[in-house]
C-alpha cells in the first residue's frame, strides 16, 4: 500500500489552524473517490467505513469472517454493513449504485466520529470466485489535505478458484454472473481447480482464464479479465 501526500502548503496552513484551535479530536469530513484501475474487472457494491482502531473488516493471514466471505463470494455487503454499524462505525454503502465498471470512479462523502480513526473498504471483484479489492485500517490523517492510497486484490481463502460460472452463495462453487456481465464471461469450462489450500486471506494470485468463451478450462477471458496489483485507487480529501 502506497500513501502519497499532496499539497504541503494546504497541510502547513491547516496544521497552523489546528494548532490555533488546538483540537484534533473533532469529527472530520472526508471526500472520497474510489477508482477501478483495471480494464476488465467489475467491482460489486463498495462498502467504506471509518471505524475504531481495534476493528477490522479483514486481516491478512487471518481467516475471513462469514460477513467477509458473503461479500467476497457473492458481492453482498449487508453483513459487513451491520457488523460495522454495530461497532459504531461511519459507513458508506454502494456509492456507484451497483457495479463499478472498469476505469470508472465513484465519489462520496463520509463524516467520521472522533473515535473512528481508521478507514477500511471492500468490494468483490468480478469475474472471480472469492476475490475482493480491499483496504484494512488506513489511519485517517489529522492534517487536512488530499491523500492517495492504492489498493490490492485479495483472495478470501474461502472458495476454490475454479473460474466457472456458478453461485454467489457461500459454500456453493462458482462465480456469480450478474446480468451486465452475461456476455463477457465464458461458459462450459471444465474448471481450473477444486482445491483451496490456503484458507487465510491472502494476496490473490490472479486468474488464469483461457481464450475459449464456449469451452476450455476457465470461463474467464485471459486477455481481458486478468489484472496486476494495484487494482484500485482511493483519493481521500480530509477537509
Amino acid at each position: 500500500m502506497k500513501v502519497i501526500k499532496k499539497s504541503p502548503i494546504k497541510i502547513a496552513l491547516s496544521a497552523l489552524t489546528l494548532a490555533l484551535v488546538s483540537s484534533t479530536t473533532m469529527a472530520q469530513e472526508l471526500s472520497i473517490t474510489v477508482t477501478n484501475l483495471t480494464q476488465g474487472l467489475h467491482f460489486t457494491p463498495v462498502v467504506t467505513a471509518a471505524h475504531s482502531s481495534d476493528n477490522h473488516i479483514f486481516m491478512l493471514s487471518e481467516m475471513a469472517t462469514t460477513e467477509l466471505q458473503t461479500m467476497a463470494e457473492g458481492g453482498d455487503i449487508s453483513g459487513l454493513v451491520s457488523m460495522l454499524t454495530n461497532a459504531d462505525a461511519n459507513v458508506n454503502e454502494n456509492p456507484a449504485s451497483g457495479l463499478l465498471a472498469p476505469s470508472m470512479s465513484a465519489s462520496f462523502t463520509l463524516t467520521n466520529d472522533s473515535a473512528n480513526t481508521h478507514l477500511s473498504l471492500a468490494a468483490m471483484i468480478l469475474p472471480s470466485n472469492d476475490g475482493f479489492v480491499g483496504l484494512d485500517s488506513w489511519t485517517i490523517p489529522d492534517t487536512a489535505g488530499t491523500y492517495t492510497v492504492f489498493l490490492n486484490a485479495y483472495d478470501a481463502g474461502t472458495e476454490a478458484n475454479n473460474e466457472l460460472r456458478g453461485s454467489g452463495a457461500i459454500g456453493e462453487a462458482g462465480m456469480p454472473v450478474p446480468p451486465p456481465l452475461e456476455a463477457s464471461i465464458g461458459m462450459n469450462g471444465t474448471g481450473i481447480t477444486d482445491m483451496e489450500s490456503n484458507d487465510k486471506v491472502h494476496i490473490h494470485r490472479g486468474s488464469l482464464g483461457d481464450d475459449d468463451m464456449a469451452a476450455g478450462k476457465s470461463d474467464i477471458n485471459n486477455s481481458v479479465q486478468r489484472w496486476l496489483n494495484p487494482i484500485a485507487k482511493l483519493t481521500i480529501t480530509v477537509q
Binding site: L60, N152, A153, I192, I203, R205, G206, L208, N222, N229
Partner: peptide
Amino acid sequence: SGVVSKDDGLSSSVLTQAHRFDNPAVK
C-alpha cells in the same frame, strides 16, 4: 514478472496455476 506455469502454456513447467503470485508477497 511472475511464474507462467504449465496451466498457462509453459509446457516444460513443473509449476501449476496455484504457484502464480502477484505483488506484494510479503508484509
